[in-house]
């Protein structure tokens, strides 16, 4: 009897062993990859500055251009962040300043300063999946979608990428059914994000076109968002990125809306 028990135990162990190894070793944890990707894409360094410009091209090929400087400060990795965006072009939006206090657990606080009226306008939280200044980028693409909004499923991997599928927990809040990401295994940057309709058709695509290392942090220099239905797109480029400047938290206030801090926008 004792032998039989031992045999059963051994067989069970042998049979389970390959299964265990698949769970532990071969199928990586999708949630862990997503959290790492979120940190890589949106939380590089403790703070940062970049010049950014967007070329917005509509379905008829007509172009609009936007140029601005972004200052960012992380309160904690994966947690609250503060952003200041100061527009320099085109002429009619020059001097317009946009400020966001991003709070992953609740609605973000957003403000806009309109220099011609000296007006600090607070913007209601609203739909995060609406266009940011007319571009194909949504507010949520600029500051990052909170990982807990979706259920994440591991799809596949090759030498270069993890491929994940993400299903929103609340489909009424978004314009897609699900999306897939191709995440670079070396630096965890999402290189391609593709959004699908309920029928499985790809409707929107975000691609990182150029990545380089800045202060040891993998950084996207050029990205493109395409509307796959009508061929319109926005090309976004970043220059003069700098991390860990020591930007103080208190500059993300009304003073900087009315009088943007040149010392942090241009200096250091």
């Amino acid at each position: 009897m004792r032998n039989i028990k031992t045999i059963i135990f051994v067989i069970a162990f042998i049979n389970l062993a390959p299964l265990q190894s698949t769970l532990a070793g071969q199928t990586p944890d999708a949630n862990e990859i997503v959290n790492k990707a979120s940190l890589a894409a949106y939380y590089g360094g403790d703070d940062g500055r970049t010049l950014a410009r967007m070329k917005i091209v509509d379905a008829n090929g007509r172009k609009q251009l936007r140029q601005f400087t972004i200052l960012r400060k992380d309160m904690e990795d994966g947690g609250e962040q503060k952003f200041l965006l100061v527009f320099s072009r085109p002429a009619d939006v020059k001097g317009t300043v946009f400020m966001v206090h991003k709070k992953p657990q609740s609605d973000d606080d957003r403000w806009l300063f309109l220099p011609a009226l000296d007006l600090v306008k607070r913007i209601s939280a609203g739909d995060k999946r609406t266009s940011f200044v007319g571009a194909h980028y949504f507010y949520e693409d600029v500051s990052g979608r909170v990982p807990t909004e979706d259920n994440h499923i591991f799809v596949s991997e090759d030498d270069e990428f993890y491929v994940l599928k993400h299903i929103p927990k609340d489909k009424t809040k978004v314009e897609f059914d699900y999306y897939k990401t191709w995440i670079d295994k070396n630096n965890y940057l999402p290189m391609v994000i593709e959004y699908y309709s309920a029928s499985g058709k790809a409707i929107r695509k975000i691609e990182a076109l150029d990545v380089s290392e800045i202060q040891g942090i993998a950084t996207v220099n050029k990205a493109k968002v395409s509307n796959l239905n009508d061929g319109s797109y926005t090309l976004m480029e970043f220059r003069k990125m700098k991390y860990d400047l020591g930007i103080p938290e208190d500059i993300f206030n009304e003073r900087s809306l009315r009088n943007p801090p040149r010392i942090w926008l241009k200096g250091k």
Binding site: L51, R53, Q67, R89, R239
Partner: peptide
């Protein structure tokens, strides 16, 4: 002006000008 040239990324001049 159709597209901004590379040199336009950061205007180092302390003077800025616009017209409407």
């Amino acid at each position: 002006e159709d597209e901004w040239g590379d040199e336009d990324w950061e205007d180092e001049s302390p003077y800025q000008w616009r017209q409407k």
